[in-house]
Nucleic acid binder design. Sequence first.
DNA 1: CTGTTAGCGCTTTCAA
DNA 2: TTGAAAGCGCTAACAG
Lengths: 337, 337
Amino acid sequence: MPRVKMEDIAKMAGVSKSTVSQYLNKRYEFMSAETKDRIEKVIRETGYQPNTLARGLKVKRTQTIGVIVANILHYYSTAVCRGIEDYCNQHGYNVIICNADDDPGKERGYIEMLLAKQADGIICVTTGENNELLGDLVRRSYPLVLVDRKAEGIETDGVYSNNEQGAFDAVEHLIRQGHRRIALLSPEIHRVSTRRERYAGYAKAHRTHGIPLNDTYVRFVDEFSGLKALLQELLRLPEPPTALFCSNDLSTVETLRALKETGIKVPERIAIVGFDDSPWTDLLEPPLTRVVQRTFEIGARSAERLLLKIEQPDAVEPTVQIMDCELKIGGTCRFGE
Amino acid sequence: MPRVKMEDIAKMAGVSKSTVSQYLNKRYEFMSAETKDRIEKVIRETGYQPNTLARGLKVKRTQTIGVIVANILHYYSTAVCRGIEDYCNQHGYNVIICNADDDPGKERGYIEMLLAKQADGIICVTTGENNELLGDLVRRSYPLVLVDRKAEGIETDGVYSNNEQGAFDAVEHLIRQGHRRIALLSPEIHRVSTRRERYAGYAKAHRTHGIPLNDTYVRFVDEFSGLKALLQELLRLPEPPTALFCSNDLSTVETLRALKETGIKVPERIAIVGFDDSPWTDLLEPPLTRVVQRTFEIGARSAERLLLKIEQPDAVEPTVQIMDCELKIGGTCRFGE
DNA sequence: CTGTTAGCGCTTTCAA
DNA sequence: TTGAAAGCGCTAACAG
């Protein structure tokens, strides 16, 4: 079933290929109204769709961008993707969403795929382990926007949350409630800027309020099977923490789950504040006190920057946008019984 | 910054374009080991990426499929997408995810875009309003797999949940707990097979247990601003329902939110069971009793079918797969105080 | 206002 | 075992 192509349309309309091409590219100025109508009619009748592969090959633009996220199952990622998609859709671009699963190998594979597919640009939540490759892109002035996580030495546009402020606000809120012994639960922080910054906010809140940091309370968890044991260990300390700060959505949810399954009451036995964008956390009892990011806006802005770089390659200095986080107060931070 | 192309590789390796092409397509048999090594080396050193647009134009295959979902923010969609993506990734295909937002116009636009981009096939959660277009595809033997929702008169592969069974199990569970007056909250059911089937399951459970259906209890809600009022209206009936069956995840969440905000206790004042795949609903207090679908498997199977149709166009009869749903018992269905 | 022509980067006979 | 050449469907000068 060979699809109809431009030549067929040209023949049926009794014009040449180039006239049809003109029509498709909306260059009507030099075309009789009659010709235009004839072409229009034939296209409608045949349901002709121009082959964008051929077009892209010629014009070196595909009107397609790639988005690489850490994990599409996380609300943060889907919301950012929606923000990107809506913006791109309105501006005539298509989006290929790729799931790197926090795996540098997959990330590299996707970057290469997107280049091979001639994506016009990439928005990337990077693992932080492909900086040479990303650096190459930037050096070749390939349009690249980073989101969520900064990459060492990559001079390009970025849209990030103010993670330090968000963490600071969360922890300060705990302190103001009377908490002094606050544990931090986070994935290993060294590779990812986001996590380092949240740790920094945690530390700064302590400093600001004259509370010494206690390493025993800082725990890096990348894998949740041992979480219940960890929590019980914390609670059995001579000076157990009275509050938990969970620095991302996965650790927040898993901690809530572990607490619930162990029957540890929140906030009576232990308070909790999380970095978590999921809109359902206010259905919990009590509703989760949490820091939320401006996810859709982060998506939309990163798309805006990327399209700008694509369409005006030189008019643009790399810009870094830092978006504030918002503390939403639920009921999981009260101090004491 | 012109990217390196096959011709450059050929020159640098001192061979012709076709030999490089052979190499890329792993046809090593007729190639001296030495030639092979030379090409390999040059490719590695230059970081050459073949242009898949040019390749696709020639071979009429892009190794890319399209997925059209109703709303990527819903857990069901993301989970199905993950299932598809994992399968495709393992089999050398890329996935373009499109968000139709339950809007027939957007759906049509995406289908046309995917055809224009020469996607090798499409997996679609259809709005049900583009059956002519979908029918065209099937007639042209374009590879198409439907997921979640059946489309009137479209003879193609499909992977669906057993919605009637799932709804039946949910409602029967309520009945066994002693409930007799069970309200149904669902989006308008006529356009979407999934919703009709769930309604059918609701009705069947009533029939099976000799309980007459009461239309006052059946409410179609597409828009949630009036939900609180609706719930209060139901509760003020002379014979108010003692239980709610929410037939999709959005209406479940919104109902839970409305109940919480109005201070209506679950399950004391009213019981609730939902069709909902979100994994966090067991963190609620009490955990939500709900029907879950085999989301990842639905994704993987639909991808499997699609790739089969792409790679063996004639070897395949259209197959419909119906996946069982599972009732997960939480604590929101108890009867009476 | 419309047609001719030369590619875009790759694959694929066919010939050497 | 390798190379030459034609062509995938489209665009963009340039002629007319």
